[in-house]
Design a protein around this nucleic acid. Sequence first.
RNA 1: GGCGGUAUCGUCUAGGGGACUAGGACACAGCCCUCUCAAGGCUGGAACACGGGUUCGAAUCCCGUUACCGCUACCA
Length: 487
Amino acid sequence: MSSGITRPRVRFAPSPTGFLHVGGARTALFNWLYARKYDGDFLLRIEDTDRVRSTDESTRAIFEGLEWLGLKWDEQVVYQGSNLERHRADAQRLIANGSAYRDFTPQAEIERLRNDAESRGLTFRFDRRLADLTPQQEAEKLARGEPFAIRFKVPDGVTEWLDLVHERIAFPNKDIEDFVVLRSDATPVYNMAVVSDDIDMGITLVMRGDDHISNTPKQILLYRALGARLPQFAHVPMILGDDGKKLSKRHGATAVGDYQYKGLLPDAMLNFLALLGWSTGDDTEVMTLAQLVEKFDVEGLQKKAAVFDTKKLEWMNGQHLAMISLDALEPFMTPAFMKAGYATADELHARKDWYYGLLELLRVRARTTDDIVALAAHYFRDSVEYDLDAVGKQWRDVAATAAVLTATRDRLAIVAAWEPQVMEDALRKLAEELGISGGKIFQPLRVALTGLTVSPGIFDVLLYLGRERSLRRIDAAVAYLGQDSPA
RNA sequence: GGCGGUAUCGUCUAGGGGACUAGGACACAGCCCUCUCAAGGCUGGAACACGGGUUCGAAUCCCGUUACCGCUACCA
């Protein structure tokens, strides 16, 4: 580093044992924001050392989730499992420099002692003396090939650090037992693997969930024993469900993929997640990714766990839906319309002005892209389904409604131009002639055109439906009323 | 149990000794706009966990209590 200033390096290190959880996504986001803000590197490490629980499918889900969110990682993905040899070598170094020792105590024996202590209401802590052997004894066991675990020799004193979100945190070492770093089957334990990898990857800031706070003193001890420079630590709060418990499947959608398929915009998700445990310090809430990067700062990180509020997420999505450019929105909408069977991509692109105009009309009334698809149904389908409540409310007087609709139809048929203002002038004039309010025409007309009592402005509906289809729908409504009437 | 962490409206938060009759946002209610629905605007109800200190003065600092969360494995 010629400048002498270390380029920040952060990482996101999930275990591939499920989908990408929203909590994980937020941890990834904070790390990513930090890297982008301070011109550093954001690395991804898959912690797949738990062979039974780790799956390739889960690894793929993590990639997909991060890609959907747009959190691109720098450099190659690191798979913890492929660093096994280094983990072992580091554990051996600890023995060599006297900061760890071999423990030949059978696992079953330790379990027995632990259960014993716990049944008497005592706290079991591994006693170093249990592993105490004379050099000859140790040499003999070693020669015989007896299995042993490697335990870290926790020194006296206090282990403390200046956490970027919690300030000073201290643990008396007497409360930390001599933990295993390498199992008797020669596989590393979590803390060993993490520290070995973080050192190797040159991580300068470890930002992770605060459920790792109690791992931190052990890891700091390992850094020191390995003679490595200590990174900074920042422990961010957990995300809770609406019952205040740690967010889990019971709370509904907890995978970022769930939100992807619910019609959420990645930038809205990111914006919402960022505000869970972080704030700008002022009142800014709705932000683009670029603004998030600009505003991000560990100063704004919160200590308190945050409850995941789906309502606010939806509101946030509505805000982003309204501010995103149509060109940026289109890639989300076209596949959705195709999936709904409304149109092909070619058909949509062939009448781009109409398509974009429709999106503009609907997005302000929607909170998700799924909402837009639902709202768009009338403009793609040929038939209208009349909502019974709408019919009952707006077509109450059958004969009068049929008459008004017929008059409306005739007026629209001869309108000079199929433009909102022209149509509005014509229909308001008609209302005046009939001695009724505009609403008395617009509301029944809305039901005729959409089958519903709610829609965008009626003249926009007419415009986007087109002249031919609009007139056909009014005819159909009149026919429906005629057939329906008691006669 | 031990250790650690946290504590402002229902929820997300601003606040880092006087600017606080505690601000904003979501949600909720009402009003305005209006062809309906949204969006938008305005208004309203709604919080400093409790108890002690320190101080002329505490939401802000200290201690304790309580509650909640996490860890407590040869899981990650």
